[in-house]
């Protein structure tokens, strides 16, 4: 698919702190791409540079193959859903959504039609004359989305639009946003620091930390083959165990050798192994990695079981309870062993 945005060597600092360190990234048309990273890693700054609110120090930003440095924000075919929505407090829902169209001097009838459609899209029919200050968080967020998409941007930037919503509403909106993106055929750049959100919604996930891109990939890539310890621990809970890659497809950790699916490391390279809690099964003691159950917590869908193996704690998710003090053996498939460089 065509590249809509190309970013090369993008660098930005505030005062003396480097906030974006030579970012390289391209965004394809119709893609749902998510920037994922901890607070302060530069996600908002990257969005603001794309939207044209912030200047960059170095690097190239291309839209549709053209450098867009000199295009002011109001002329870019890009719209933003802001972190706290930034709805205009003096305008009602209708006039908030119609704001951009009125500036474009669109005929009144067309504006009315477009606003109606946008309201329908975000399921807020009949809210036209409501004061935006009296809307709930979820409704405000829908108005913010409607206000942006009604302008038919080529690219929609969403800065943690779901952060203020409760879990249930957030899950509903995740689904609806995804649907909306498919229906509209607009490229979405979505910012979040919630890994689950990133994994469920995106075509592509970009993991950032401290102004750098650590990994770009599909949600499956990121989850199953995290490139390093930071990503592995950021993408959900993990057991990370030091080990040695004896040769391709053979890894040694906790004193045992295991077959695995990874290759391409130097022989005897020092590596780390990622074992997801839900990938480990507890069995009666046998010849493998043995340990003692030290704690068990009921988590709703599953139990979280802590097993002590020679002083190292493993987290295991299982639907079967265990008694504290039980001696158990850890078992996993070779596909579940994820190897990354130390």
């Amino acid at each position: 698919m065509k590249k809509l945005i190309e970013i090369e060597g993008l660098t930005k600092s505030f005062d003396d702190t480097l906030v974006l360190k030579s970012i390289n990234l391209y965004i394809r048309e119709n893609e749902f791409i998510t920037l994922l990273g901890p607070s302060g890693c530069g996600k908002t700054t990257l969005l603001r540079i794309l939207a044209g609110f912030e200047s960059k120090d170095a690097g190239i930003v291309k839209f549709d193959g053209n450098i867009i440095d000199d295009i002011p924000p109001h002329e870019r075919p890009i719209n933003t859903v802001f972190q706290k929505y930034a709805l205009f407090p003096h305008l009602d829902v209708y006039n908030n959504i119609a704001f951009g169209l009125k500036l474009k001097k669109m005929p009144k009838d067309d504006i009315e039609k477009a606003v109606k459609e946008a309201l329908k899209l975000v399921k807020l029919e009949g809210f036209e004359s409501r004061n935006v200050k009296t809307l709930s968080g979820g409704q405000q967020q829908r108005v913010a989305i409607a206000r942006a998409v009604v302008n038919k941007p080529r690219l929609l930037l969403l800065d943690e639009p779901l952060a203020a919503l409760d879990l249930k509403l957030r899950q509903d909106m995740q689904y609806e946003l995804k649907e909306m993106q498919r229906a509209l055929g607009i490229t979405f750049v979505f910012v979040t620091h919630d890994q689950e959100e990133a994994l469920t919604m995106s075509d592509t996930v970009v993991v950032m930390n401290q102004g750098e891109i650590l990994q770009i990939g599909t949600p499956q890539d990121i989850y199953n083959e995290p490139k390093n310890k930071f990503i592995a621990s950021f993408i959900g809970e993990s057991n990370i165990i030091p080990g040695i890659m004896l040769k391709d497809y053979l890894v040694k950790f906790e004193g045992y050798e295991f077959e695995c699916v990874d290759k391409g490391f130097d022989d005897n390279a020092e590596i780390e192994v990622v074992l997801r809690p839900e990938d480990i099964e507890l069995k009666p003691v046998n010849g493998g990695i043995n340990g003692v159950v030290t704690d068990i917590i009921f988590k709703g869908v599953h139990y979280e079981i802590i097993v002590d193996v020679n002083g190292r704690e493993y987290i295991i998710h299982s639907t079967d309870p265990q008694l504290v003090g039980n001696k158990v053996s850890l078992s996993f498939d070779k596909e579940d062993i994820h190897v990354m460089l130390r």
Partner: peptide, 21 residues
């Protein structure tokens, strides 16, 4: 909201329009 001005620009307002409107 610190983003109010930017939101107006984002929706196609010039700086002057963003201030006035």
């Amino acid at each position: 909201d610190p983003n109010l001005f930017d939101a107006a620009l984002d929706l196609g307002a010039t700086k002057f329009q963003a201030i006035v409107r």
